[in-house]
Computed example of a mutant assay.
Amino acid sequence: MNGLYDSLTVIFIFPLIIYIGANGKNKSKLTNKICAFLGDISYPLYIIHFPFIYLYCAWVFDNNITISQGIWVGTGLLIGTLLLSYLSLRL
């Protein structure tokens, strides 16, 4: 069942998402700047986020961290990863 779900998602849902995104029109300059920034930062973020996720998950599971404790580290990790991605893009 999982193989069927994966196949149908890749064949139908992913192309639909790309089609919808490719046909969207931005009407304001701010929206264009935000979309351009997100598009530019997506590849550096894709490259560097994985080790940070593994470290965070290992820390949470090994130390039995609660949500109220982990949310602050997770938020800081998100912001730090975005900043590192931006620096990677610019440098």
Rank of each mutant, 00 (worst) to 15 (best):
Y5F: 15
Y5T: 08
D6S: 11
S7M: 14
L8V: 01
V10A: 07
I11W: 12
I11C: 02
F12V: 12
I13P: 00
L16W: 10
I17T: 05
I18H: 03
Y19P: 03
A22Q: 13
G24I: 15
K25F: 04
N26L: 13
N26D: 13
N26M: 15
K27W: 15
S28K: 07
S28V: 01
L30D: 00
L30G: 12
N32C: 11
I34M: 00
I34G: 02
A36M: 10
A36D: 15
G39F: 11
D40H: 14
I41F: 02
Y43K: 15
L45W: 04
L45F: 08
I47D: 02
I47C: 06
P51E: 02
I53S: 08
I53F: 09
L55S: 00
L55P: 05
Y56A: 14
C57V: 14
A58S: 13
W59C: 00
V60T: 14
F61W: 03
D62A: 15
D62G: 09
D62V: 12
D62Q: 15
N63T: 09
I65M: 07
I65L: 04
I65E: 08
T66A: 08
I67H: 10
I67S: 01
I67C: 02
I67P: 00
Q69P: 02
Q69F: 05
I71F: 03
I71E: 00
W72S: 03
G76P: 06
G76S: 00
L78H: 02
L78G: 06
I79V: 07
I79W: 04
G80L: 04
G80I: 08
T81R: 06
L82F: 10
L82A: 02
L83A: 06
L83E: 08
L83Y: 09
L89P: 01
L91N: 12
